[in-house]
């Protein structure tokens, strides 16, 4: 394998790891609540801004921000579910899409109003440090983003498999009425699912800030990529989402090499997406394995 391809493969896997965390948040929400969240990427954007201002104003390291974001964004997700999303649970998909679309529009514009449309970037001392991996350059910040995201996915998986709350969440994902019948508090499960999903995506945003610009418009791309991954991995299927994310990451970075222009890399991802939707709507790994 030539060096450029090895490099592309490695950076694809690195960013794919972060995509996994974004997508796992989305698929958890979808699996448990059957809600398609079009505002998903906007929570990522707010996570990034949080880390940016914490660093620019108070010198807080982004990795510390990531830790603090967990309870904070969990609470935000909990509240958003309780106030905005709850009324449309069980309503038509059109209503749900329009509501979350409205939320996404609002959050983007709010970010523009509060933080301006300017692109910002968070600078850390170790931002440009790299090491050599059999001929490919890997930056420490990307490796950290990958490792933290993968760790979060694994932790979430263990949480869902081992704890009582996790099992209750999975029961909701399987069968809403059934879960209710055995005495699970569905409304609370929904808040937990949304809180966890939002915390995941916000942390994914934060761990990217050392190497990714911050702007009000970063969200939609991640929303769409997360959908691609979730469809690829099978709706509601968490290991499927992780595998799908790594595939998308690699397709994207290899796409950047083979496409006439590197900024056309997303084209490969969207074409993959449409193909999967058309020919394998149940995903590559089957649905609802959460």
């Amino acid at each position: 394998m030539s060096d450029v391809y090895l490099q592309a493969l490695i950076s694809g896997l690195m960013i794919g790891g972060v995509y996994a965390l974004v997508a796992v948040g989305l698929t958890l929400i979808f699996g448990v609540m059957d809600i398609i969240n079009f505002a998903h990427g906007e929570f990522l954007m707010f996570g990034m801004y949080g880390a940016f201002f914490a660093s620019a104003l108070f010198g807080i390291d982004p990795y510390l921000s990531a830790v603090m974001a967990l309870p904070l964004f969990f609470a935000i997700g909990w509240a958003v579910q309780g106030v905005l999303i709850r009324p449309v649970v069980g309503k038509s998909h059109a209503i749900q899409i329009l509501l979350t679309l409205g939320l996404s529009l609002l959050m983007q514009a709010l970010a523009q109003f509060l933080f301006s449309a300017d692109f910002q970037s968070l600078k850390v001392d170790y931002g440009s440090a790299t090491f050599d991996l059999s001929g490919a350059r890997v930056s420490y910040t990307r490796l950290a983003a990958f490792a933290i995201s993968m760790g979060m996915c694994a932790a979430l998986w263990v949480f869902l498999q081992r704890t009582d709350t996790g099992k209750a969440l999975r029961a909701c994902a399987e069968e809403h009425e059934g879960a209710q019948a055995v005495g699970i508090d569905i409304a609370r499960m929904y808040k937990i699912a949304f809180g966890l999903g939002i915390a995941c995506v916000a942390i994914a945003g934060i761990v990217m800030t050392p190497f990714f610009y911050v702007a009000p418009v970063v969200g939609p791309k991640f929303t769409l990529v997360a959908f691609v991954i979730v469809v690829l991995g099978g709706l509601g299927n968490i290991p499927g989402a992780v595998a799908g994310a790594l595939i998308v990451g690699v397709v994207e970075s290899v796409g950047a090499l083979v496409m006439p222009s590197p900024s056309l890399k997303d084209l490969a991802v969207y074409v993959l997406f449409i193909l999967v939707l058309l020919f394998r709507p149940q995903g590559l790994f089957g649905g609802k394995g959460a």
Binding site: Q108, A109, L110, F113, A117, D118, P216
Partner: peptide, 10 residues
Amino acid sequence: GGGLAIILYG
């Protein structure tokens, strides 16, 4: 930074 109109739309 602007965007109030879109906030209202949302």
